[in-house]
């Protein structure tokens, strides 16, 4: 195989794959944030904690109830989504008439509490979660070794992102959601139960975070801090993509994962900050984000 700028292709492809996997998590998480922000006008700071909770629920299902990865991939998002609905009904719904800042503060507080509880019970050293048998091993592609599970993460995230995009942009239910994002009062005056939609949307958005958490469990160890590390980057992704654009959130997620991976190859020292540098540049040139509509 050829070498590019003195970089062996194994290294390049390896980092590209790693970038694509990180991008998969950025995409699913920023998608959830964008859906929630669109309808609720709340910047859901608890998103990282709920992603972590998704991974923990999968771990608990396995270790306490003997329920394996595949059922957990469905059950854990449902459990996290149901927990989100309880949060929405009991707390968030009281804040809609206030400035976004209050929603941000509340969800930030919730994130700290949820993380603190898990840290208290499970420590911070991380718990192992096995790759499901079906997806252990990998493929030798000639120029690199592709672990099956990592390929699955990319495929699963693409499917979920595409499914969500399709539901929002192409279905009648999605038309309600888009309309209520623009003018909830008028949609309510047509006879639609907007509070129910808001509740289910928050539940769905955080279920996406829970789903990402289950996907992450076999790759990263299940750890109470896994969400807080990721969520800061995901917020930068959302700022770059522009709040309120579904496709924007998805594409920016994958794109920035790949950019980060490439930076790790060509300028490793910059890989931790490259996304924030891009965020700063985007904010200067196009403050509404790459895919955002001007306010």
């Amino acid at each position: 195989m050829f070498e590019l700028l003195g970089i062996p292709p194994q290294v390049l492809m390896g980092q590209l794959l790693l970038g694509l996997i990180n991008g998969s998590f950025y995409a699913v998480l920023s998608l959830g944030l964008a859906v929630i922000f669109g309808l609720l006008n709340i910047i859901n700071f608890a998103h990282g904690a709920l992603y972590m909770a998704g991974a923990f629920v999968a771990w608990m299902l396995l270790n306490y109830l003997g329920i394996g990865y595949w059922p957990a991939l469905i059950l854990a998002p449902l459990i996290v989504g149901a927990f989100g609905i309880v949060l929405e009904r009991t707390m968030l719904s009281r804040l809609y008439h206030l400035d976004h800042l209050y929603g941000l503060l509340l969800t930030f507080g919730l994130a700290l509490i949820i993380q603190g509880l898990f840290r208290n019970y499970y420590g911070i050293s991380g718990l192992p979660y096995q790759i499901p048998n079906l997806l252990s091993g990998g493929q030798n592609l000639g120029f690199m070794f592709l672990p099956n599970y990592r390929a699955w993460v990319v495929v699963a995230s693409v499917l979920v992102c595409f499914g969500t995009w399709f539901m929002i942009e192409k279905t009648r239910l999605g038309a309600y959601l888009r309309a209520a994002t623009e003018n909830p009062v008028l949609v309510g005056a047509f006879g639609v139960n907007v509070p129910l939609m808001i509740m289910l949307t928050y539940g769905f958005g955080v279920a996406l975070a829970g789903f990402a958490g289950v996907l992450a469990a076999p790759i990263y160890s299940v750890n109470p801090t896994m969400g807080e590390q990721l969520i800061i980057v995901v917020f930068a992704v959302v700022v770059i993509g522009g709040m309120g654009s579904i496709m924007g959130a998805i594409l920016t997620g994958y794109m920035l994962g790949i950019v980060e991976g490439l930076t790790r190859v060509f300028y490793p020292e910059g890989s931790a900050v490259v996304i924030f540098v891009i965020m700063a540049i985007v904010l200067m040139i196009k403050p509404e984000g790459l895919f955002g509509r001007p306010a």
């Binding site: 888009r178 994002t181 003018n183 005056a189 139960n193």
Partner: peptide, 24 residues
């Protein structure tokens, strides 16, 4: 009653600002 319940009785509003949705 809530607006949605009033709408479901069979009253429909065409608002002054028209309320056409730009994302639809």
């Amino acid at each position: 009653m809530q607006p949605r319940a009033i709408a479901r009785l069979g009253i429909a509003l065409c608002p002054e600002e028209r309320g056409i949705f730009s994302s639809l």
